[in-house]
């Protein structure tokens, strides 16, 4: 597990490109996205349609999150990008480098130092603070889409606050498996009004959405929707009185840092199927290990 520190090679190659506007997008596009973000903040959980642009990477790689990041990033921002909690995976490294090159912004892997954190499918374990903005990459923004394929219908359902089918879906889980089997992209109600897809974060992260001090923005590039959860907003995971919402727990600890509180990834380490568990949030894991392993940083 090397390369948890900033990827030195790619950052060095991140010299500012000429010929692009600051942060890649043109100003008219940024204004359009910014106006959408204001409405998204004013109506928490409501999906605002926006004129999504083609980005220089395929849909599914974070085009929605990148457009939001491009619209909010400023010269003084410090950007962190994570993919399933890790700073050193392809998606995270590429997007971090993209903004280092097109906007010249500083980048970091340290959660507390970042002002803008673009994330794919995790919320950092380190608690966020009020000067931070979290930008989520969202594949399917509509929580009702798998139940109702028609956009006209789901829009009406949101307008009427008609969310009964969402509970039916969770109930079917209970009828089939004896418990709510949905473990990621677990639907939430925002400020007692809109049912929202929190993006495919594990339900382990859902409680971090509730009354978070940081602003949370969600961007779906292919579906061309953006939405937001302002700071200190009530976000409640759907459940039943007799089947209350609960997050995953592990018997094991992280094999590197020993954490028992963080979200753990399961690794198969040999042909016999032996398992180890490690933190999904690499920065959190590194920070816990550093006091014991100071040589780790030098060794990069």
């Amino acid at each position: 597990m090397n390369g948890l520190n900033p990827n030195a090679a790619s950052q060095a190659a991140g010299a500012l490109e000429s010929g692009y506007n600051f942060a890649y997008l043109d100003e008219q596009t940024k204004r359009m996205i910014r106006r959408g973000l204001l409405k998204a903040v004013a109506v928490p959980g409501y999906q605002v349609p926006f004129g999504g642009r083609e980005m220089p990477l395929p849909y599914g790689w974070g085009t929605g999150g990148m457009q939001l990041s491009a619209a909010i990033l400023g010269a003084d921002d410090v950007l962190k990008v994570i993919d399933q909690g890790a700073d050193d995976t392809t998606n995270a490294v590429s997007i971090r480098r993209f903004f280092a090159r097109t906007a010249g912004v500083a980048t970091t892997t340290r959660t507390p130092e970042a002002t803008v954190i673009q994330t794919r499918h995790r919320i950092p374990e380190t608690p966020l603070h009020g000067e931070q903005i979290l930008v989520f990459q969202v594949p399917i923004p509509e929580p009702l889409r798998f139940i109702e394929p028609s956009e006209t219908e789901t829009r009406t359902m949101h307008a009427l606050g008609d969310y009964g089918v969402m509970h039916v879906k969770l109930y079917e889980d209970i009828a089939t498996f004896g418990h709510i089997a949905t473990s990621y992209a677990y639907p939430v109600t925002v400020d007692e009004r809109y049912v929202m897809d929190p993006s495919p974060i594990p339900k382990f992260d859902n409680p971090k959405l509730h009354m978070s001090p940081a602003l949370m923005l969600f961007g779906a590039g292919r579906e061309k929707r953006l939405y937001a959860v302002p700071p200190f907003t009530e976000v409640v995971s759907l459940d039943f009185a007799d089947h209350p919402f609960a997050v995953q727990r592990w018997e094991e600890n992280c094999a590197f840092c020993g954490s028992h509180d963080s979200y753990l990834d399961e690794l198969i380490v040999d042909d016999a199927g032996s398992k180890r568990f490690v933190c999904s949030d690499t920065d959190y894991c590194m920070q816990r290990r550093e006091p014991f392993e100071p040589q780790q940083e030098v060794g990069q």
């Binding site: 600051f22 204001l38 909010i72 400023g74 009020g130 602003l215 302002p230």
Partner: peptide, 19 residues
């Protein structure tokens, strides 16, 4: 600076609306 001043002003407005 039309680019960076617009960004700074927007971020202040976003924060104003978010809080």
């Amino acid at each position: 600076d039309p680019v960076l001043d617009a960004q700074v002003s927007f971020r202040a407005a976003l924060k104003a609306l978010a809080e």
